[in-house]
Design a protein around this nucleic acid. Structure first.
Length: 586
RNA sequence: GCACCCAUAGCUCAGCUGGAUAGAGCGCUGCCCUCCGAAGGCAGAGGUCAAAGGUUCGAAUCCUUUUGGGUGCGCCA
């Protein structure tokens, strides 16, 4: 179905066409001057400029046509050619009726469905999740839901960092610490123990040590690089040890992502494509795309019109090992093979140059056209000093610690309530409320901008927050049950908004598609957050201004129940896409 | 050095294919529960949109320069 602004745009567009001008000048948007009218169209000014006409006269002609259109109850002309538009009661009632019937609840739908894979994990084996992983996980999970709502077949891949230098660093470090382990005995090639010699906690401790050692000691780095190459070449002991790393890490990651409510349909990693690399290298060589450079093999991707130097994509390092350039390229080979039509990478925007390299190389070898591979980059989470976020001790804040903080805060807030929740219920609601605060605080920032990470904001429950949205949803449910009506029943009542607050709520409800479409097309969940907040706000005003359950007139009451039910259904639909769970009460 | 991004209210941020009086949340001030959930609603104070030029009937938005921040630039991912 059409959104209200689309419906109005169509009408105004026709009026422009009747003047021999492009219909796109008829674009209608929510007014900047709500005191004059709820919608506006400024196209007459731009059209007049282009057609060298008088804007005021042009707007007059458009207005004359719109005056005869029953979609508008009022059309006024202001200033040099601004059209102020008020949709008619009949139009609102009619569109609300359509919305009640719409099987997609007013959401945006693509004409054709695409098979899309989203990459929003990328955690490294051995490194526990920290706040830096939060954005990718939350934005990616949300984008996946937004894609699905629009009709795409979207799946998420965790794409573990399990095949690069860090693996060699771990192996080399463990070898130094426990050289007698069977994994390091070249004479042994099978029958390794099933029990992992290291736990996730061990790995978390070992990795930073190993990483730091390599940074300051070239000798240690050489050991790690050699171990990496040997691992990739298939040395049995290393492979067996590596298997343990992956297994213990996956278990921990499942738990962490699970707590966040983030899911992956695919648990692949860099290592999954190892066997695809050799044929890929052959293919690149065959296509004359591969060059030797300083002992390494690379694909040159620089172009004449580049404003800056784009370095070549490193495929095989001089020591024979492969890095993420080749695994990422091979991953595209794999995704193409598996029938994915579009690949979206929800990864820190600082890696944009890397994706330019990979995408160009992939396009050059004919895997995908460049517009089918996207880097939906996101901004850095900074501390209050403007630099990437660190805890006071200088480390990164672990995700589990952040979750615990938010949880505790929500629990405290719930204890202030009327005590109708049992301890167990309260713990569950606290989890939902805390998580909602956290996710909404992150998602409501535009994806691409950096933002200041402020714990207080993540645990705020008032104003433009996740809990505000949950509160609205919970209260709606409570109103419906108090009125003795169900959502399904109320959706069958005729909605005829009369009061200003009712009309404003109706107009919000009828703009869902615009917000969803924007979020989908731009890959920007914050647009959906904006809409959710506006909707909840419109409902809260409506609730404050109008009686619902105890309204005397049955007709008015039913109309209001219909608006309430529509809000309930739409809010639930949106919160689902944002990953917020609505508790029964709070 | 080269390239890219950012600078809007006390704070955190929207708005940027140019358009009427620049918005939100927090914080601050004052109201609103004998009535469906006050994690709420209403009202108010608060801004040379970093600075200077330019394009335009019209610039927070486009162009140039300057200042101040941030980021990236082949064997880490």
């Amino acid at each position: 179905m059409l959104s209200l602004s689309e419906r109005l745009s169509a009408a105004v567009g026709e009026a422009f066409e009747a003047q021999g001008l492009d219909a796109s000048y008829g674009a209608v948007k929510v007014s900047d001057r709500p005191d004059l009218a709820p919608y506006q169209c400024n196209g007459a000014l731009a059209a007049a400029k282009k057609a060298k006409q008088n804007p005021r006269q042009l707007a007059e002609a458009v207005k004359a046509k719109l005056d005869a259109d029953e979609a508008f109850s009022e059309v006024t002309l202001a200033g040099p050619g601004f059209l102020n538009l008020t949709p008619s009661q009949g139009l609102l009632d009619g569109l609300l009726g359509e919305l009640q019937q719409d099987e997609h609840q007013g959401a945006y739908r693509r004409e054709t469905s695409e098979k899309v894979i989203l990459d929003y994990g990328g955690p490294n084996v051995a490194k526990p999740l920290h706040v830096g992983h939060l954005r990718a996980a939350i934005i990616g999970q949300s984008l996946k839901q937004i894609f699905r709502r629009a009709g795409d077949e979207a799946v998420g891949d965790i794409h573990l960092g399990d095949w690069g230098l860090q693996m060699g660093q771990l192996i080399a470090e463990i070898k130094r610490r426990q050289p007698d382990l069977v994994y390091f005995d070249r004479a042994v090639t099978e029958g390794y123990p099933e029990e992992s010699p290291v736990s996730v906690a061990d790995l978390a401790e070992i990795y930073p040590v190993a990483s730091a050692a390599c940074k300051e000691d070239p000798g240690r780095m050489a050991e790690a690089q050699e171990a990496t190459a040997e691992l990739q070449a298939g040395r049995p002991g290393y492979r067996a040890l590596w298997q343990h790393f992956v297994a213990v890490s996956q278990e921990a990651l499942r738990a962490d992502y699970g707590r966040l409510g983030v899911e992956f349909e695919l648990w692949r990693g860099e290592a999954s494509v190892h066997d695809l690399i050799e044929p890929m290298v052959d293919e690149l060589a065959e296509q004359n795309l591969l060059e030797f450079s300083d002992g390494a093999r690379v694909v040159r991707v620089a172009r004449e019109d580049d404003k800056k130097d784009i370095p070549p994509l490193l495929i095989v390092k001089s020591n024979g090992s492969v890095g993420y350039g080749s695994t990422d390229l091979a991953t595209l080979v794999e995704r193409k093979r598996d029938g994915f039509e579009r690949c979206v990478y929800v990864v820190d925007k600082r890696q944009s140059e890397h994706f330019v390299q990979v995408f160009r190389a992939a396009a050059a070898m004919g895997l995908y056209p460049e517009d089918r591979m996207e880097h939906a980059g996101f901004g850095t989470m900074n501390g209050k000093d403007g630099r990437p976020f660190k805890t006071r001790e200088g480390g990164v804040l672990r995700l589990s610690d952040l979750l615990a903080m938010v949880d505790e805060k929500a629990e405290e807030r719930l204890k202030e309530g009327d005590g109708s929740l049992t301890g167990e219920e309260r713990a569950e609601v606290a989890r939902q409320v805390g998580l909602a605060a956290l996710k909404f605080a992150d998602l409501s920032n535009p994806r691409t901008t950096d933002y200041v990470f402020d714990v207080d904001r993540f645990v705020a429950f008032e104003g433009k927050t996740g809990p505000y949205l949950l509160y609205a949803a919970v209260r709606i449910g409570s109103v419906l049950s108090r009125a003795g009506s169900s959502e399904e029943e109320a959706l069958g009542f005729a909605a005829a908004p009369a009061e200003p607050a009712e009309r404003e709520l109706a107009m919000q409800l009828l703009s869902y598609k615009d917000a969803h479409r924007g979020a989908y097309e731009k890959r920007m969940p914050h647009l959906l957050c904006e809409h959710a907040f506006s909707l909840a706000q419109a409902f809260s005003r409506f609730y404050a201004a109008c009686r619902i359950a105890d309204e005397e007139s049955a007709e008015v009451k039913n109309s209001r129940l219909a608006l309430t039910a529509l809000t309930s259904r739409q809010l639930r639909d949106i919160l689902g896409q944002l990953g917020l769970e609505i508790p029964p009460k709070m």
